[in-house]
Design a protein around this nucleic acid. Sequence first.
RNA 1: GGCGAUGUGGCGGAAUUGGCAGACGCGCUUGACUCAAAAUCAAGUGUCCUCUGGACGUGUGGGUUCGAGUCCCACCAUCGCUACCA
Length: 806
Amino acid sequence: MAFSHQSIEAKWQRYWEENKTFKTSDDDLERPKYYALDMFPYPSGSGLHVGHPEGYTATDILSRMKRMQGYRVLHPMGWDAFGLPAEQYALETNKHPREFTQANIDNFRRQIKSLGFSYDWDREVDTTDPAYYKWTQWIFIQLYKKGLAYIDEVPVNWCPALGTVLANEEVVDGVSERGGHPVVQKPMKQWMLAITKYADRLLEDLEELDWPESIKDMQRNWIGRSEGADVRFSVDGSEQTFTVFTTRPDTLFGATYCVFAPEHELVDKIATESQRAAVNAYRDEAAAKTELERTELQKDKTGVFTGAYAVNPVNGEKLPIWIADYVLASYGSGAIMAVPAHDERDYEFATAFDLPIREVVEGGDISEAAYTEDGPHTQSGFLNGLYTDEAITKMIDWLESEGKGERQVTYRLRDWLFSRQRYWGEPIPVIHWEDGSMTHVSEDELPIELPEMDEFKPSGTGESPLANATEWVIVEDPATGMKGRRETNTMPQWAGSCWYYLRYIDPDNPDALADWEKMKAWLPVDMYIGGAEHAVLHLLYARFWHKFLYDIGAVPTKEPFQRLYNQGMILGENHEKMSKSKGNIVNPDDILETHGADTLRLYEMFMGPLDASIAWSSNGLDGARRFLDRVWRLVADENGALRSVIQKDADTDALAKTYHETVQKVTEDFENLRFNTGISQLMVFINECYKQEAIPASFIEGFVKLLSPVAPHIAEELWSILGHEGTIAYEPWPVFDESYLVEDEVEIVVQINGKVRSKLIVPADIDKEELEKRACEDEKVQEAIQGQTVRKVIAVPGKLVNIVAN
RNA sequence: GGCGAUGUGGCGGAAUUGGCAGACGCGCUUGACUCAAAAUCAAGUGUCCUCUGGACGUGUGGGUUCGAGUCCCACCAUCGCUACCA
């Protein structure tokens, strides 16, 4: 008979809630700690997706196992509830975002609770709660005070349809991620955070982290540190000078022209009369291009000659200065020296515009293509004969001694565009005064709460809807009577998620982010699991804030997340990404109804490796349920009583080896997030039990404990049936006895020329010579090598014997 | 184009200090139970052949080795990230 998942799950969820089974104490400091963190969800209107429980189940298994192993465990959940979707919805329905955000949170909470996760719900955080964002604003003020938050006029992604500015990550293929509206470039005053000041440390400290190498690589690439030199050129016949950044200063003798980004500040000053019209036309054209057009048109190089010439600092040659949009204003100095012989982009440009190409590194054929490999330098004065590394060093030394340049490091990483022109975000706690000055709000006035508003339409001018809340915006300094306007920009969604893992540690603290001693007791996060889509931005931003907080003495560790793991995606049954339009979405609520939470948890963990993207299979789900039914029937009879096959004093011999192997493998596999193979071992154990006449109760109890992190409801119920009171959640985790794992006799494979021809049962401790002898005496071996000469015998004790004969 | 990852039965996947390829699950086949079906239990299930045996087999082609899914070289395919970063 199948167990009734609905009554069992309801019963135990109620029990855990009423008994506060998973309430985490901040005492017990003598026990080792374990902080298992999930990437908290954005509570969308469509509710939980089957992808959510995958990562949540993984951390829940670890949390439950660690509790049973005697750890004090911090395992919290919360809501990343600010964000653009809510704002869009508010615009469409004219409802306050808070209302339906609250409703969405309630729905998410209900769904998550119904899956039986062992969160300490007393630590729930919500980024839209003023008591929470008070501290988000506090962190901003600290950044501001250190000069790391500043206003700059930068070209931003302006989306006319949404009436707001978007971050790069919200623009996909030149259109807005939400809605697919066109996006254009427009210069605007924006808040920026100086993450680039932390670039080196963000890069270096990756080394100490136990993260997937691929994620570290993505962060390294994103930071994009490159070493090279700044080289100063003067403009011929003018006082103007400009700097270029190059990673190949050794090729300076091969420079045949220079290129400025169209937006470069010098363009206006140096363009000659005859070229001015063409230059202006090109620049207007480039400015009008959207991101999409720039990327689509990247195939063909375009550009215009400015009419001006630069003077090469190493040999005084005059080099024509061009403008071209293949040079980016935002990287390096926005100007380059072009060495077409040894740079593919410059080669392409030089070929298109018939500019000279001069070889300075031997080894390639520059009539065919740019040569970017190493080789002896030529036509390069004091560098002749040197290879690249030496030539770079020597050139930089020369530039520095001549005062014409210096060693330089450049990053691809840009400062973080931090303002959003939206209502539904944390207000930036800054006031602009009528005398033109600007101050941050005093810390004791925090939080600056969002004003109540009836409408959430963007102002259309690029200002946020907050600009319409006149009463809120206009302030007067009680001391001086000076009037001012509050900053109307709000923070991006990334802000609240940058530090939520700190707030879980001390969620109700009114005086600090979190208590220092409590942070010392819990940080860093031991395991952080979430989707790979956050591999770069969220994780880099959070690391940046954490390092900053460390610098001002607000947190005790350099890094927030010691171990990170990215779960894969669950695809639809048709192997495609789940989406409404494809109609292949699986709703967890439905699965809970038909199969139960334990089955869903078990299935998602058994599908395959946690980091793989695997298609949903309803047959596979049925199989998971079948296993739980099989476990249930092994232990309980039709009336829910313990079956007689399970006996206190049953002979342990037949099952001991399998049992101890199971304890060992499951423990190791769970620890290393190999849930699929751990579960398969649980299945092996149950298959073995079904072959027994009698099963020792102690083994079944151990098994139920091993199962409990994956399928906690059924495990609790079985634990009761086995005659125990209360919860299994803190029962000691089973240990295995090594002595049951070693066998007296082992099976050895005998190969002839690498092919298995026979098998031997020999004592486990047999030595090499004896093993070899027994293998050669084997009947089948004798038969097989008849008439052949044995050339060589390889004997590996405990494994195999390979006889080479012909 | 660059960086990274992955290619194993009909399907999801196991196997990593190089040592019996295909654990476990799904699906399928057969049998038991049943009037019947479902469920359950039992047996089987990589491909091929001349079937008490044997040959072949981990994307393709080479190589190292007594022995390669595993190591090396070249290539092909798929996925992720990044896209003129000087």
